[in-house]
Amino acid sequence: MVTLPHTPDDIRAPARDRAMGALSGAAAATALVGAGPDLLTRFLAPEPSPVARAAHLTRTALEGTGEPSADPLERAWVEVLRTLVRTGAAPGRADALEHAPSEDPLGVSWRALARTPVPDHRPHLGSFACTHLVDTVWAAYTTAGDLAAVYAGALAGARWGLSAIPLQALRVLSETVDPHVLVTDALTRADGARPDRWPRASVLVGEPRRLPPFAVPHPLDPQVLLGNIDHLRAHPDSVDAVVSLCRTHPSDAPHLAPVDWIRVWLHDSPEVNTNLHFTLDEAAAAVAALRAEGKRVLLHCWAGASRTPAVAARYAAAGLGAPVLPALTLLIRTVGGHLDNPSLARAVARLSGHDLPDPARSLFPEGVPPRRADLPDPRTTG
């Protein structure tokens, strides 16, 4: 197994985001370049093929045991991916890959990762550093085609994490494979099998984490419900599609078509969301895309009190044209939410070009309203 630099039980650690990003990034590359489902099917299949070899090397890197083969390029590529997952940064040199033949997919993927410029992170201008992932995949694809793109997706996914993969690509992916399968595969290989814990087991099902089902209409779009995970479980027929902002399990919504369930890697804790602006923007865009398809949407997190109003406010600003600061105030009041994690409100405001150093004072100058009665202690998050 990869020795991840964090407390083993801290699922929020960025290294776990990166471990999931490696396998999911390789698979999502097929969607990003429009390769069609056949390439993804071969990537996932046990039968030997060049693209199945890419899956094998990615899994080998996550497991961290032994060498993949006697091939020096494969060994070098696996070590680069391991380093990316552990540290979030590529090694300074990878000579074997740097000097690989011009069309070799492993060398192409490394050179694409290393040479593709990282975009300036200017969220108020719609520019996010983590879109380097997509740029890397396209650079590899342009140079050497589908297989190079898959290898590049693994490296860039390990660099930037699952949270940097565009949600539309994951939605396309879900037509062939449940993204939860890839998450489970990656974390099992990186951390070992833990059948009683997420992602193999459902979460937030016992006290004090089980909450009464809760949902209210978005005040600016009543066809969007704002709620918690227990509403998803208790009222499966209340909506046509779901955007989940907390960890979920297939058993939470077995009735949903995979393309109608968009799962977002977002935590309700400061300093752990490495691609926070991009993730919030993508989640809001996912709500807008589902609404454009005429679907009634549930936007939820664990409690429906922090992540949910943040994304709902970004949807209001970017999708409905509402001013962002009044939208934040309105949405937090609507769900009876809170500002226990002010980094979410700051990021939503920044996406619209506003600095918000003290969200509580700016949004609620007369005092933050009382939190919903069923909400847990502020120290307990989902």
Rank of each mutant, 00 (worst) to 15 (best):
A215V: 02
L256C: 12
V264K: 00
Q223T: 14
P217F: 12
S251M: 10
W261F: 14
L245W: 03
P258Y: 05
L256S: 10
L211Y: 01
L245H: 02
P212D: 15
D230E: 15
R247F: 08
A234N: 09
D230T: 04
V242Y: 00
P217D: 13
L245D: 02
L256Y: 05
P213Q: 10
R209S: 08
L256A: 14
P250G: 13
L211H: 07
T248E: 05
P254Q: 09
G227R: 00
L225F: 09
H218D: 15
P213H: 12
P222A: 15
P212Q: 11
A215W: 00
I229Q: 05
D252R: 02
Q223M: 14
R233Y: 06
N228G: 12
V243F: 03
V239H: 07
L225G: 03
P213K: 11
R233G: 05
T248L: 04
L225Q: 06
P222G: 15
H249R: 11
P217L: 12
R210S: 13
W265L: 15
I262K: 01
P219K: 08
D260T: 08
N228W: 02
T248I: 07
T248M: 06
P219V: 08
L226I: 05
P254T: 08
R210F: 07
L256G: 04
L232G: 01
A234V: 03
L226A: 06
P254Y: 07
D230P: 03
P254K: 08
D260C: 11
D260E: 13
R210H: 10
L232E: 05
L220F: 13
S244A: 15
L211S: 04
P217K: 12
W261R: 09
V264N: 02
A215N: 03
V224G: 01
V243K: 00
